[in-house]
Design a protein around this nucleic acid. Structure first.
Lengths: 219, 219, 219, 219
DNA sequence: GATGAATGAGCGTTCATTCAT
DNA sequence: GATGAATGAACGCTCATTCAT
C-alpha cells in the first residue's frame, strides 16, 4: 500500500522501475549491486564487478537497467518508497494506535522500532548516505517530504501528551529533530562500520533517559 | 564574527602549507581541489578539472602531490592532524578559562563557537564526510582521538557545574554526545548544501533551550 | 624449404593460441604486437600503435591481455616454453633418427636446419634478444633449460662419431657452444636487420668447413 | 690521438660532443647515465633518475646535452671513438709489434687482451648491445667500418703465419669472424649479467684449443 | 652556468555502454 | 532474454623538455 503521503518517487527519479517482475538474474544483479555499492561505494564499483558477483553477463545489467545510474535508482527507489511510508505513515499511525499511557512509553517503543529499522536497512542506508554527499538535494527533498507528511500526524500524537503535561509545547517537528538527532548520533557508527553491532537496549535506555529529561516540561 | 579562539582556519591551514613550501601554483591546486572535491566529490573530480580550475598544467599537480590520492591527503591530513586537535584543545581550554558563571552560559558560548567553526571549515567538512562513507576507519580514528584528548578536560570543566547541581552527573563524553548530536542535527543541511545559510542565533537559542532542559538535574 | 622436422612455428604457435581461444581480433593484436615489438622494440611501441595496426580499439588489447607486459608474455611465453623446447627436442631426436654416416653430414644438416628455424622465427628472436638486455635472467633460464634438456641426447648422438674418431672427445655442451657461436656469428646480422637475407648454402658450407676442422681430432 | 682509421663519428652521430671540457657536474651526469642506462636500459631510465643520481638539477642535463638522446650519444661516441681504434688500430699493431713466434701465441695473447677489454667496458658494451636492437644500422656500420679498417692489417699479420703453414689460407675477415664468434659466445653472459665473473685463463685455454684446431691447416 | 618549477603531449589502463550472435 | 567481445572516451600519471630566476 502506498503511504497516504502520496510520495511519488517518479518525481524524484524519473523512470522508476517496478522491481516486481524482475527475473532471477535481474534480482541477482540488484542484490550484488546493493552489497557492492554499500561495501565499496558507487564509484568504487564497476559494472564488471556487479556482473561477476551476480553471475551474469555485463550486457544483462544494461538490458534491464539501461545505465549504471539506473541500477542505483532501482536500489534507492524501493528504499525510499518504503522507508518514507514506513518511517512516516505506518510508523506514526502505529504509534497512535498503540495509545501509550505515557510519553515515556511511546519514546521507548519508537526508538526501539527505529533502531530495528535502521539495522534492517543498513546497506541501503549506507548507499543513501554516500549519495547525499554528491547529490545534497536528495536530503532536502526527503526532509521536506517527511516534514510535510508527518507534521500534522505527529501534532496529533504529541498533543495527547502535551495536554497531559508530559511533553513540552514545542512544535512536533522540533521535537522530532531532537529525537532523530540523538538516535542518529547513536546509530551512525553502526551504519557506517559494517561490523559494529548496536546494543539496542542500552541505547534505548540512555536515549530515553536523556530525551525524557529534555522534553518533559519543568514543574 | 570569528570566534576569539583564534580558530582561523585560513591561518592554521595556510601555515601548514607554507611549511611545506608550496608555491603559488601549488596553492592554487590545493584550493581548486578543496572546492571541487567538496562540490563534486573526490571521484567526480578529474585531475584535468583541478588543473583547469587552478590554471596550471596537469603535470604540476603530480609533481608535488604524487597522486590524486596524495592531493586528498594533503587536504585532509592537516585538517585531521592539526586543525581538529588544535581547535579542540583550544576550544576546551578556552571554555575552562572563561569560567562561565552558569552551565547555560557555557553551553551558549560553546554552541556559537562550534557553529562558527563548522561554517569556517565547510568544504573540508564536506570532503571529510564523503570520505568517511568510503573509509569508515577515519571516523573511528577521529572519534577516538578526540575522546582521548578531551575526556579529562571536559571532566574538569563539567565538574564545576555538576557540583553546583546545574549539570547531570553523566560522564562527560555522554554529555558531549548529546550536545554534538543536536548541533550536527542543525548543521548537517548547512554543511551539505552549499547555499544554505544558518541562523546562528536562532539555532543557538533553540539548542540551548533543549539541551539545558535535558542536561539539568530535576529537583 | 621448411625443415622436415615439422618446425612450423605457425602451426605450433597457432595451436597454442587456439588453445587460449583467441578471437580473430585478439589474434590480430598478437600479430601486430609481434611485428611492432620486433620493429621498434617493446618500449618504442605504444598500445595505440598496436591497436591501430591490428585494426581494433585500444580497449580490446587490455580486455584479453590485461597489460602491455601481458602482451609481451603472450608472445614470449609460448616461444620459450613450447616452441624452443619442442623444437630442441625434435631437433635432437631428428638428428639421432637420421643416423648420418659421418659427423660432417650431421653438421651440415643441423646447420641448415637451424638456419631455417631462425629464419622462421625472426620476429620472436629479435624481441627475445631485446628483452634479454633488460631482463638477463631470461638468458640464463633458457640456457639452463636447453642444457638440461639436451646434454644427454647430444651425448648419445655425438658418441657415435667420437667412437669413430670423427669428433673430438669434448663434452657435448662444449661442442654445442662452438657450433652455436659460429652459427650465431653468421645469423645475428640477419636476425637484427629486417631486410638482410642469408645465403643458406654459403653459410652452411663455410661453417661446416671451419667446424669440421676444429672438431675433428688430429691424427 | 685519433686512430689512423680516421673513424669520423660525426658521420654516425651528427653532433658529437667533445667530452673534454665537461664540468664536474656534467661528468657526473655522464657517469650516472652510464650506470643507469646499463642497469635499467635507456627507456627505463628517466632524466629525473639521472639528475638525482648525479646530484644535479634536471635543467643541467639539457643545458649541455640538449636531449636525452644526446646523452646517449655522449656515452657511445667516446666508446666508439676508443673501442674502434683500440679494437682495431692499436690492437692489430700491437699484435704485429709483438712478433709472436707462433700463431698459437698470438691467439692466446689476443684473446686475453679482448677479454680484458670487454671486462673493462662492460657498461658501455651493454648499452651498445641494447641500442643495436633498436637501431640495427649501428651494427652494420660498425662491422663494415671494422672490416674496412682491419682487413689489410690483419692480412699482413696473418700472412706471416699462413706462410709458415700455421694458419689456414682463408681471408683474414673470415678468420676474425670465427675468433670473434667464439669469444662472444664465452663473453655474452658475462656482459649481460652484472654479477657473472669470467675465468679468463680457463676461457683462453679452451678457446685457443678449439680455434687452433679449427684454424690450423691439416697436413 | 645552474636551477627546479612548470609544462603538455603522450602513455597505459579502466569502464560504462553497445550490439551482433 | 542473455551473452560477452568490442568499443572509445576519459582517466591518472610520466617524463623529456623549457625557461624565468
Amino acid at each position: 500500500m502506498m503511504s497516504k503521503m502520496g510520495l511519488d518517487m517518479q518525481t524524484i527519479f524519473g523512470q522508476a522501475l517496478d522491481n516486481r517482475g524482475l527475473s532471477r538474474k535481474q534480482q541477482a544483479v540488484l542484490n550484488a549491486s546493493l552489497v557492492l555499492f554499500a561495501e565499496q561505494g558507487y564509484d568504487g564499483t564497476s559494472t564488471a564487478d556487479i556482473a561477476h558477483k551476480a553471475g551474469v553477463s555485463e550486457g544483462t545489467i544494461f538490458k534491464r537497467f539501461r545505465t549504471k545510474e539506473g541500477l542505483l535508482q532501482a536500489i534507492l527507489e524501493p528504499f525510499l518508497n518504503q522507508v518514507i511510508p514506513q518511517a512516516a505513515g505506518e510508523f506514526v499511525s502505529d504509534l497512535a494506535d498503540k495509545r501509550f499511557p505515557h510519553f515515556k512509553d511511546l519514546l521507548a517503543y519508537g526508538i526501539r522500532d527505529r533502531i530495528d529499522f535502521v539495522t534492517a536497512n543498513r546497506p541501503e542506508m549506507k548507499i543513501f548516505i554516500q549519495e547525499i554527499g554528491k547529490n545534497p538535494i536528495l536530503l532536502v527533498q526527503m526532509t521536506n517530504m517527511l516534514a510535510d507528511a508527518l507534521r500534522e500526524s505527529f501534532n496529533d500524537v504529541f498533543k495527547v501528551y502535551q495536554d497531559k503535561g508530559e511533553l513540552v509545547q514545542w512544535e512536533s517537528m522540533r521535537i522530532m529533530r531532537y529525537v532523530t538527532s540523538v538516535l542518529i548520533g547513536y546509530m551512525i557508527p553502526n551504519v557506517i562500520m559494517d561490523d559494529m553491532p548496536v546494543d539496542k537496549e542500552h541505547v534505548t535506555q540512555e536515549a530515553v533517559e536523556f530525551l525524557l529529561l529534555g522534553l518533559t516540561p519543568r514543574a
